[in-house]
Design a protein around this nucleic acid. Structure first.
Lengths: 116, 116
DNA sequence: TAGGAATATACGTCAATAGGAATATACCTT
DNA sequence: AAGGTATATTCCTATTGACGTATATTCCTA
């Protein structure tokens, strides 16, 4: 969101307007993750996860870094303060939500995964 | 957003995912407004404004109070902290955006309007 | 009670979105 | 080079969303 215009802000909030994408954002708030980790944690179909990641990448909420065979996604570090504040609020309150909390727990357990 | 679930949160962010609705939220952050004031400030077609207000009311972001011939919309006072934080960030940064700023200026000038 | 002002709804159209199935691409390993 | 793993893309379908035109509803006032 280089230029702060309602248009861009709307585009940012569109990224947060889907449950699956919110779950992904909740995970990426903890740091970069590779696609297979995200898939494992969400327990959703590969194509579904991939397309939501592509959606957010296209709208510049996420950036991707390829390492060997794996794609690591992370939140764009240069987001507008409004975006940052919105996501920070999600992070602060994630434990109140069963889905977010369960995802974060699976994230913990996946640290010692053999995936990537 | 009585229950905090990604579903509800997604629904909330859907309300923020349209430029016109963002402009409305920006105005309502300053307090309740009647539809005619909102229409005057946005300078958009009546039906467009009305439908966006209906959209947000249906998703419980806004509540409406009828007074005589006029409908006053306001932000639901019992919103989840995540929603509050997101909107507060919008309020803090509104002056950075030409559209938001111009809308707020027209809001000032409309205080002495003969509308409602 | 008839007319007018304020606001919402119905209907039609077109674009965008979500999700699945199948397929393609990119890179690694043997 | 061949096969495997990781990930993206294409195609299809059903749903939702945005916006305009026309019309309905609600309430006030003369």
């Amino acid at each position: 969101m280089a230029n702060f215009r309602p248009m861009d802000l709307a585009s940012f909030y569109k990224c947060l307007s889907d449950p699956t994408r919110l779950r992904i954002v909740n995970l990426l708030l903890k740091g970069p993750l590779c696609v297979c980790q995200i898939q494992d944690i969400l327990q959703e179909a590969q194509v579904k996860t991939s397309k939501h990641l592509g959606y957010m990448k296209k709208r510049e909420l996420l950036v991707v870094k390829r390492k060997a065979n794996w794609n690591f996604y992370e939140l764009d570090p240069s987001l507008h303060p409004i975006a940052r504040a919105s996501m920070q609020a999600i992070e602060v309150h994630a434990s109140e939500d069963p889905t977010f909390a369960a995802d974060l727990e699976r994230l913990q357990n996946s640290q010692d995964s053999d995936c990537c």
